[in-house]
């Protein structure tokens, strides 16, 4: 269960952004692929605990699932695949390169200054 460590890394980044803008974090958007090694359900559960007492307390976590996609090294076609079988959907070749599905990305952070004033009042 390394999702807490992932949350800590996320928190460090979004706290820095919130500080720069003197604002509170209201929503965080991530993209997570099945081949990132991070389980979205566990991350959702760990997130509120990691955020407690920070500028991101009570913020929403939006996780956008990234699809597994491969490009065939033989026929060049791009197709979707499953995490366990990264084969070309057209020719069945296993020699492919991953073009999507291992994302572990912070896409964007939504901030509110109003909530900061309210929270400090």
């Amino acid at each position: 269960m390394h999702e807490m460590a992932i949350c800590d890394a996320l928190l460090q980044q979004i706290e820095g952004i919130a500080r720069e803008h003197s604002a509170r974090v209201t929503r965080v958007h991530l993209a997570i692929g099945p081949l990132s090694g991070v389980e979205p359900a566990l991350l959702r559960r760990a997130y509120p605990m990691a955020c407690a007492g920070t500028v991101a307390e009570d913020s929403d976590l939006v996780i956008e699932a990234a699809a597994v996609r491969v490009r065939c090294r033989s026929c060049g076609r791009e197709s979707s695949a499953s995490a366990q079988r990264l084969l070309c959907a057209k020719c069945g070749n296993w020699q492919t390169e991953l073009t999507g599905g291992d994302e572990l990305l912070l896409l964007r952070v939504e901030l509110s200054k109003e909530r900061l004033v309210t929270a400090q009042a």
Binding site: A9, I17, H21, R108, E110, L111, S112
Partner: peptide
């Protein structure tokens, strides 16, 4: 009503 900051960076950047 919100400010949005695009990051598009790796979560484990540090």
């Amino acid at each position: 009503g919100t400010t949005t900051v695009d990051v598009l960076g790796r979560l484990l950047a540090a």
